[in-house]
Amino acid sequence: MNAHTTRSFRFLTATAAALALAACSDEPDKDATELESATTEGEADALAAALPVGDFMDLKLGAKIVGPQGPEVTGTLDSAEGSFADIRSYVACPAGMDPCDPKTAPEGTIYTYVHVVYPGEDNEDDTGSGEGNDSSDVEQATSFRMLRPAHGFTGSVGYSKAEALAAIGEKADIVVTCLDGAIIWSVNPGDAGDQWEQAEPMTFYWQSTLPPSGPAPAYSIKANYTEAAGSGPYPAAKDGATNACL
Results as ranks from 00 to 15, higher is better:
M1W: 09
M1S: 15
N2E: 11
A3M: 13
H4D: 15
T5R: 12
T6G: 11
F9T: 09
F9E: 06
F11P: 00
T13W: 02
T13F: 00
A14E: 13
A17T: 14
L19K: 12
A20R: 14
L21A: 14
L21C: 00
D26G: 13
E27L: 14
D29R: 07
K30P: 05
A32T: 01
L35I: 00
T40P: 07
L51K: 08
G54K: 06
F56Y: 15
F56E: 03
K60M: 09
A63S: 15
K64N: 09
I65A: 04
V66M: 00
G70W: 01
T74G: 13
L77C: 05
D78Y: 02
E81F: 09
G82F: 13
S83P: 01
F84R: 05
R88A: 12
R88I: 14
Y90H: 14
Y90R: 10
V91W: 01
V91C: 06
P94R: 12
C100R: 07
I110R: 09
Y111K: 07
V116E: 14
V116S: 07
Y118W: 15
Y118Q: 07
P119V: 01
D122N: 15
T127S: 12
T127N: 11
G130T: 11
G130Y: 06
G132F: 11
N133S: 14
S135R: 04
S136Y: 13
V138C: 05
A141T: 15
A141W: 00
F144Q: 06
R145G: 07
M146G: 11
R148F: 11
A150V: 10
S160C: 10
S160R: 12
E163F: 01
L165S: 08
A166N: 09
G169M: 04
E170R: 12
A172Q: 12
I174M: 05
C178Q: 06
L179K: 15
L179M: 11
V187F: 04
N188S: 13
N188Q: 13
G190M: 03
A192S: 12
A192V: 04
D194W: 03
D194H: 08
Q195W: 07
Q198E: 15
Q198R: 08
E200M: 14
P201M: 04
P201A: 10
T203M: 05
T209H: 03
G214W: 03
G214P: 09
A216G: 02
N224D: 15
E227P: 01
A229W: 01
G232I: 03
P235G: 03
A236N: 13
A237S: 15
D239H: 06
G240D: 09
A241V: 10
T242P: 02
T242F: 00
T242D: 08
C245V: 10
